[in-house]
Amino acid sequence: MKYLCLIYDEEKKLGGMSKTESDAFMGEYFAFTEGIRKSGHYVAGEALQPVQTATSVRVRSGKVSTTDGPFAETKEQLGGFYMIEARDLNDAIQIASKIPSAKLGTVEVRPVVDFSTQPQA
């Protein structure tokens, strides 16, 4: 079963890191990604540009409106994600707990809908 791990970090906290600290942090990410590739859990994963680059798009009455920034202002911002293949939620939680940002921010684990096994109502 696939789970999406959404990584929320405090950009301020990350921005405040020294060069050595942020290099070490990136190193942890490389090691983590390598680990889940080897174990077969890795499906995909990306890091995102900072939230100041975000644009929200809505279509209302056929009109496209674009606004600066994310949908909601929060203390922690979505900074990246991993899509993983896990046996069950416990397995997924195990993996999510090893994402380096789990120590600083929050990782939200969301099961992905598998339309091939959903009953067609």
């Binding site: 046996r87 069950d88 939620l89 416990n90 397995d91 684990v109 099961p111």
Partner: peptide, 10 residues
């Protein structure tokens, strides 16, 4: 069911 919480002793 949907998040597949396993039926097991930890």
């Amino acid at each position: 069911r949907d998040a597949r919480i396993p039926y097991q002793v930890p």
